[in-house]
Simulated assay, not measured.
Amino acid sequence: MKKALITGVTGQDGSYLAELLLSKGYKVYGMRRRTSTPNFENVEHIKDQIEWVSGDLTDLASLIEAVRLSDPDEVYNLAAQSFVAASWPQPLATGQITALSVTNMLEAVRLVKPSAKFYQASSSEMFGRVVETPQKETTPFYPRSPYGVAKVYGHWITVNYRESYDMFACSGILFNHESPRRGIEFVTRKVTDGVARIKLGLATELRLGNLDAKRDWGFAGDYVKAMWLMLQQDQPDDFVISTGETHTVEELVKVAFEYVGLDWKNYVVLDEKYVRPAEVDLLLGDCSKAKQVLGWDLEVDFEQLVHMMVDSDMKRLSQYKEMVSI
């Protein structure tokens, strides 16, 4: 039985990855930071199948202990401060949690289980003000947020450990990937939640920022398969994971509102407070290397993804509406 340690296991990606690994017969260890009110919402259905270990990304000693206890064959480092907008008011915390923590995890693995295969969650936000389109593994980085800068550090320190210590360490440069488990503060989920609230009479408007920003959106459940495939290769390497299609925020809004039979123009309000200090205008990934080398491909397209998320929020909020009306 293979053993895997996942940081960020209670997040969107971590929960889908844990499901995938459990289905493949892995013993899954989930690392979580001690809190007075733990949030298991995304993994409630598999919580008892996960072995839980304590650890804090900013505390090397706790990470060493987590690796020692789990003795993993594979380590998936998914935990981070992952909300781009929050990285401007919290740049130091973002640097500690999203950048330096990668060194902590790599060092813990190097010291305790150097034979373990290591996956680092890199991000398309590293490309920022893109210098070429589409973006591929060799495209230079030009991050436009403290989050993007932190992810660049995490990416390059992973490359450095691979080359310095001959570790099997690789990065997945994942473009935007969403699901019903996405945090409510992210624009995709903000839109689908807002659409459901308006349709059910729980809200009258949806306030958004830049509708012209273009993103390459895919389904998180598809993307975690690519993570696993990267660690099944004979040699470590880095891969762009994307759909190869780009859509504006306005397209996202239009698809979501049309799905419930509403005209988005009657409900969307543009609000300057949601405009980023430095915007990333266009992200579009070239995932041909992942398709060729890993044999990876998508199963859920853009419209299916948006409809899936609207359905989930409609169901959740319908139950809430019934409960409060009793």
Rank of each mutant, 00 (worst) to 15 (best):
Q90N: 14
S312E: 08
S62R: 08
P143Y: 12
V152P: 10
L229F: 05
V280P: 10
G30W: 04
S288G: 06
P72G: 09
G30A: 00
L206W: 04
G55E: 05
S318V: 11
Q96N: 08
W228V: 14
N210P: 09
E185L: 09
T204W: 10
D193P: 06
M308F: 10
M230D: 05
A256M: 02
F239Y: 14
P89V: 07
S122P: 11
A196E: 04
Q81M: 05
E51D: 15
G218C: 11
E185V: 13
A66T: 01
L202V: 03
N42L: 10
E74Y: 02
G218E: 10
G14M: 00
R316E: 11
S164R: 10
R276E: 15
K24Q: 05
T138I: 08
E19T: 04
D263P: 06
E205S: 14
L294F: 02
T158P: 03
M31L: 15
L174H: 07
L174C: 13
T243A: 09
P236M: 00
D166A: 12
S62C: 12
I50M: 02
T246D: 15
S101W: 03
E19A: 09
P72T: 02
V84G: 09
R162K: 06
Y147A: 03
P91K: 12
P277Q: 04
Y165V: 07
V275N: 09
V130R: 07
G95R: 06
D48Q: 13
L60Y: 03
T7A: 07
D238H: 05
Y142H: 14
D238A: 02
M230L: 12
G295A: 03
L229M: 13
V255M: 00
D281V: 07
R34F: 13
A18W: 12
M31C: 11
D48M: 05
K117C: 08
A99Y: 10
K136L: 06
Y76P: 15
L21D: 11
E250A: 05
F83A: 12
D234S: 14
A99K: 07
V43D: 09
S171W: 02
T58Q: 13
I46G: 07
A213W: 08
D263G: 08
V253P: 02
F40K: 03
F257S: 11
N176Y: 15
Y161S: 00
K199E: 04
E137L: 03
K117L: 05
V293E: 06
P91D: 07
R316H: 06
L208A: 01
A116D: 10
A99Q: 00
S164V: 04
E303T: 13
G285F: 03
A116C: 01
D212I: 01
W217N: 11
R129D: 10
G261I: 02
G209L: 10
N160F: 15
